[in-house]
Design a protein around this nucleic acid. Structure first.
Lengths: 197, 197
DNA sequence: GGGATTTTATACCATTCAGTATATAATTTG
DNA sequence: CAAATTATATACTGAATGGTATAAAATCCC
């Protein structure tokens, strides 16, 4: 063995992820990433191979983080009201908190077209499917329990929620403020409440 | 006077707009733009000043085109059904038609973060306000006529529609196909129908 | 037709980019 | 302490970028 790393891999990855989130893939130059992470590009390359793999690692971290965040809302006892609370929670994040200003890393990436590789695009699609899976599992159970009307198409409802969110995230990014999507999401919440029996 | 231009300015601008729409601002290099328009960069610079102004001109053309497209749907006799037809029309565009694969130029631009200038961002915001204006004017009239329930918040309804669209456009871009947003928009249409008295 | 004027083509510029070769510094094991 | 090994810093590379200087070609008005 020899000299150990002078940094924590996860901390560096999180900082890199924030940089990508804020500035996009092309917008995050190696210089930016060095400044954001506090380590030199050599260390970045030794640890993460190259810029694309660093980005993919950031995507994976973001995926896990979102998955965890949703899981804490959508346990097996969750109600339609918890879904509403989840939406309100996302939209009312502290506007000074950095992520609230940058939209959603995955949505941003979906529309970043210059050098988006097949794997990066695939990761965005997988992320989307993961989110949809959460909604479908919750809504499906609620429908079985009779809390949601039987004429509601669960697939359509799940796509509706994520579609609304992605629109809200786009607008949030443009205005660097999630609360501009409040009016939109008020109506989304009305619609969701209307699914109840 | 002297030698006239060898090309039609509007035709060139339309081709440049399609290039930006497809590849984004950064993704459209001067080389790409030369190939897309069929004229040399010198002519582009003589005619449009520089790349940013060319992009802004493309934004303006897109703005006009969208405005015209919406105007033909939302005349003074339009009903809630026409709004539904409009949504179905947008989503069922011929998938082989190029624009159907690229999402929406303005949404793509809103999330393109590298070199988006203040004016380019402002144009996206203005575009969004123009669209919202169409919806508000239609919905407001329908509410006055008693075709829409009086407890519906028109501002919220208008933001809801454009928010849904922007989400649908993001997903369309990711999958290079607008029809993947069909399930989502089915529910949006259900919601809109529910506004009726 | 000829001079003035504008368009266009070629070739170039400085800058920035991701990525790397070389060399130096730091740490662990023996 | 010494040898081996790994992390880091400096400085560089080739490619691509947006933009331009120079000059040639084409057209109009007189």
């Amino acid at each position: 063995m020899a000299r150990p790393r002078q940094f924590d891999k996860n901390e560096v990855l999180e900082k890199a992820m924030l940089c990508f989130w804020q500035n996009g893939y092309e917008g995050s130059s190696l210089k930016n990433l060095e400044e954001a992470t506090g380590i030199g590009r050599i260390s970045l390359y030794n640890t993460f191979q190259d810029k694309e793999h660093l980005f993919i690692a950031a995507q994976n971290m973001y995926y896990q983080s979102s998955n965890d965040f949703m899981s804490q809302f959508y346990n097996e006892n969750a109600t339609l009201d918890d879904l509403v609370k989840f939406i309100q929670n996302v939209i009312s994040k502290d506007p000074d908190e950095a992520p609230a200003k940058f939209g959603c890393l995955m949505v941003n990436t979906a529309l970043d077209t210059k050098t988006i590789s097949d794997q990066i695009a695939e990761n965005v699609k997988n992320y989307r499917q993961m989110i949809i899976g959460h909604y479908k599992s919750l809504l499906g159970r609620l429908q079985k329990n009779g809390e949601i009307r039987s004429d509601i198409n669960i697939d359509s409802a799940a796509e509706f929620i994520i579609g609304s969110f992605w629109g809200a995230m786009s607008i949030s990014r443009l205005y660097k403020d999630r609360s501009v999507a409040k009016l939109q999401l008020d109506m989304v919440i009305e619609t969701i409440k209307g699914w109840s029996t």
